[in-house]
Write a protein that binds this DNA or RNA. Sequence first.
DNA 1: CATGAATGAGTATTCATTCAT
DNA 2: CATGAATGAATACTCATTCAT
Lengths: 211, 211, 211, 211
Amino acid sequence: MKRVELNKENKRASLLKTSFQLFSEKGFAKTSISDIVKEAGMAKGTFYLYFKDKYDLRDQLVIRKSLQVIREANEALESKPQKGFENQFIAYVDHIIECLEKDKILLRFINRNLSGALFESMMEGAIGADLQNLLRRCEESMAAEHIICSNLHLMVFTLMELLSGTMYSCILDGQPVTMEEYLPYLHESIRAIIHAFCREQAEDTENPAEP
Amino acid sequence: MKRVELNKENKRASLLKTSFQLFSEKGFAKTSISDIVKEAGMAKGTFYLYFKDKYDLRDQLVIRKSLQVIREANEALESKPQKGFENQFIAYVDHIIECLEKDKILLRFINRNLSGALFESMMEGAIGADLQNLLRRCEESMAAEHIICSNLHLMVFTLMELLSGTMYSCILDGQPVTMEEYLPYLHESIRAIIHAFCREQAEDTENPAEP
Amino acid sequence: MKRVELNKENKRASLLKTSFQLFSEKGFAKTSISDIVKEAGMAKGTFYLYFKDKYDLRDQLVIRKSLQVIREANEALESKPQKGFENQFIAYVDHIIECLEKDKILLRFINRNLSGALFESMMEGAIGADLQNLLRRCEESMAAEHIICSNLHLMVFTLMELLSGTMYSCILDGQPVTMEEYLPYLHESIRAIIHAFCREQAEDTENPAEP
Amino acid sequence: MKRVELNKENKRASLLKTSFQLFSEKGFAKTSISDIVKEAGMAKGTFYLYFKDKYDLRDQLVIRKSLQVIREANEALESKPQKGFENQFIAYVDHIIECLEKDKILLRFINRNLSGALFESMMEGAIGADLQNLLRRCEESMAAEHIICSNLHLMVFTLMELLSGTMYSCILDGQPVTMEEYLPYLHESIRAIIHAFCREQAEDTENPAEP
DNA sequence: CATGAATGAGTATTCATTCAT
DNA sequence: CATGAATGAATACTCATTCAT
């Protein structure tokens, strides 16, 4: 029964916003549709005009929020380009960390609610496109720098799993150390993995760009 | 007196086993206590003689199952000792992977239900002791090989986060590749991270403590 | 809009009526919410749209029923005014007795369920206002008759405790005698207590009775 | 699981004592047999060796506790005899008040749990005998003082109802005043009621029992 | 579009009571 | 006598979903 919440105009947005708050506070399982509509200041029936059920709402929420993080990281990367593939990648990672460190609730939310099934469906939507984009840009950078990667997909996968796991622990729990303390080690680990996957192309003269 | 004690332990074991099965099949949220006791063939009230509630049951389950994996890996490691710290660690990881690849349900269960709060409480129990043990053994190995690690704790943290994230994806979803395909890359990544954290001690005799 | 409001009030009334019946028949503790809604012909959930729980329902019931008795006694008193404070008070008491003798279930219900805590909260609501009214009227009567009461509050308290205790025994159990038999003794006792608390104002000459 | 509570010897007494405490603290309805035996440090089954059920236990408790109060008042009265029937009665009342003011828990317990049905059954047991005793003593006192009471039973009934109602309010709730403040008014009311029921016998010789 | 009253299946939890040991 | 594990009926309460207005 809070406000009338920008009445009319944008009920869907209001429901998304309210439910994000409640899911973060009380968790998904303990948040009822009743709670959401009461907080959003509308009637129960209205919920079903916009979402199929609670799960539908959650999934839309995860997609929007994840997309938002990735977009922000992309934009930040474009506005401040780095020299060299390795540095670019690390800058990208730092943007994501910075973004989620500012919005810990979002981090917790994404981590809690990002199920495998949903993740795959996201990969075929806008997020997938964005990530394809990222991969392509990586390839370009590496080509420009004459770097050969044994398996780009798996390298990104490895790096992303490392990032998401450690980020969650350090940012949210400060366990085993805070993100600030961990960051140099993370950077080193990332560089080490990149080196493990990549090698520089042999001499320019002998190998004139893959004949 | 013995008969009765035995019977109790059977009851508890039966509840744990049944609920593990149901949680794995239908998920924790969609499994009711009714389901569990019906499947286990006992009265509802009996459940409450052994567990405080569904959450208590789940936590005990996670602890038992996790402990089991770690113990198995420890035993396997002891029975087949490896040469060198790096190889030892990789063998340890391989044991865990092997163990969870055989029991995917267990992997899914642990990953789904291992919340941060529970994890920390586990670290103060038997599992914590086992992991302390592991760390100590690492230290001994490294000392014996004159390897200096910049931060052993954070190295193990990094390696474990990498392992658990990739393991979940590859073993359970086969995404982006199967574990079999990913394994060589994982090994390389592990070695790379270890190298990033460690360096060999300078000359044996002279070694004037970092000149 | 009106139809719906009306329907709601009917539902609430139906629950109150049904539960009063059941509480009277089987007692509060042995009446379940299931019983009530079954008897009232509605769904379980509907109950919780109108009352917080069984205790809330009971309290609302006690308040309504008590108010009803007091209101009736007030109305009866106004329609048949008596001469003199003492007679007025006795007439008031007789109205209450008459009213509860006709509705023994109500008497039993009020007596059983009127806890101290609820009683006090009632005293701050409509019932309190009604009783304040009664006290004020008593004061006026007494002033008009030049009667001085050493402590009006305590007198009414004393009389009411006497009334409620004896009423319950005599009307409901016929113990030690029926109300009919006891009534003259009750009247005498009331008069005696009033005399014990009050005395007539001194001599006419000095204070010529407010001419 | 407290102590072993004077093990063997006196389980019944232990159960009575423990349950009195718990009933007083949490109320009868919210005290379970589990609570009682746990607190008394014995097994559930043991309860049923001594009491039929919770209601049986409560009733025995009420009887014992009530008897105790009456006995104490009787003993106190005998040890400090008063001059005159009226003073005797008031002394008796004061003893009861004093006794219950010291043990408010007991007062609350008796008031909460003394149902009409139980009361009657008590009247046919030891308590009834004690009260008969009291009545007989009253008659003797009055005869000795040449006082004639229009109805001794109803007078005692009236006085007792007045006493119990006001005592509960004043002692336990301090409402509308404390017992200390109320006591003089109570005494006056009692004397007034006694006077209303009794009159002194006219001259001894000339007045041969109401001509 | 929006409402919110009504539903009733479903859930966790309690507890008096029994009975084999 | 004493135990306490086992029972399962019973209870309060929740909540996603529908539908008449």
